Simulated scan of single mutants.
Amino acid sequence: MLKRNVLAMSFAPRDNHEAQVQFALERGVPAVIGVLGSINLPYPSRAFDMAQCSRCLIPWTANDGMYLMEVDRVLRPGGYWVLSGPPINWKTYYQVWKRTKEDLKAEQKKIEELAEQLCWEKKYEKGDIAIFRKKVNDKSCRRNSANMCKPRGSDDVWYKQMETCITPFPKVSSASEVAGGELKKFPARLFAVPPHISKGLVEGVSVESYQEDNKLWKKHVNAYKRINRLIGTARYRNVMDMNAGLGGFAAALESPKSWVMNVVPTIGKDTLGVIYERGLVGIYHDWCEGFSTYPRTYDLIHANGVFSLYQDKCSFEDILLEMDRILRPEGAVIFRDDVDVLNKVRKIAGGMRWDTKMNDHEDGPLVPEKILVAVKQYWVGGIKGNSTSSAE
């Protein structure tokens, strides 16, 4: 998919014998630990252009189709769902799967009935693959007394119980209009005004302020590259932005050599829908908790205003220890925050054996916002105490 300029977000449960997420991240592919269970996925509605299930063994017809309804929630109008594995091609594999023909045939029929209720069309089936497409709006949907979700803010999903209901399409004025807004093709979509902003769905953000934000982050990223010349090279493949805002950092950094996990803190402004409309990937998260990944999986972490945001919520030590856990040895962190906050961070980082350097704001030393750059040292336990690998 990367060769086709497609960025895929994979998730899989933590497994005792196959750490699939760790393998993916070590290959430089976006992935998080996750499961389709009883809690909403940590993504906004209409986030993905395509969703794929390859032999994932999810019981799609269980709980009155609740899992398929959750896929529908995160799938953009006009998006595709690809199913590969049971019960598709049951005539060939029913004996291997140790199930009866009747059981598998009934399961596939139920999936197709659910798809029709969700306003999906089956577009293709051949061999082990079936492809469904979600319609661009609900003007031609055939929904017989479908249970529609009650309004609660469709992106209010953090620790929310999954419900057996269908997320309504945004309203449209014509049969050809794409519900939620049409998107340009990538990479033009990266800097085009996202529908969330043009429709005024993000409080306090206008088209003008969005464009100014893009200019600001181009300036910031240029400053980062002057401080650390490895930024933008293949040295930093897996990048995380801990407080992504409108995705300006990731957009300014955009390169085939790296990708950015844009994290939107659950205690801040909800901008994750904007990030996905720009063709980027991200996730909701509360930094008072551990992040859903394995240790040593990110090469570069960007923390803009994270510690000011959380200074009354949880301890700096806990957040920094979690950053240390997910950062690779010799990986780097860029902090951007108020100087008083960064001085506290710097003191703790020194105790974690990080090398740190404080830098002035791009606009000069009189600006109270500073840039702290840290590098995690590779060190091991020696006979006479801990020492760096170079000393060994």
Rank of each mutant, 00 (worst) to 15 (best):
L7Q: 02
A19T: 08
Q20R: 14
L25P: 06
G28R: 01
P44T: 07
M50Q: 11
C56V: 10
W60R: 03
T61A: 14
N63G: 10
Y80D: 13
Q95K: 15
L104I: 12
E107F: 06
W120K: 05
E121W: 10
E121G: 14
E125C: 13
K126F: 07
K126Q: 11
I129T: 15
N137Y: 04
D138K: 15
N147G: 11
C149Q: 02
R152L: 09
G153P: 06
S154G: 06
D155W: 03
E163I: 11
T164P: 10
T167N: 02
F169W: 08
G180E: 01
F191Q: 02
I197D: 05
G204W: 03
V205I: 11
S209Y: 00
E212M: 09
W217D: 08
N222G: 10
Y224D: 07
K225M: 14
G232R: 06
G245I: 00
G248T: 02
S255L: 06
N262R: 00
G268D: 03
L272V: 12
L272C: 07
V274A: 04
G279M: 07
G282K: 01
I283M: 08
D286F: 05
C288R: 11
E289Q: 12
H302I: 14
N304S: 15
G305D: 11
V306R: 13
K313P: 04
I334E: 12
K347W: 01
L366R: 11
S387T: 11
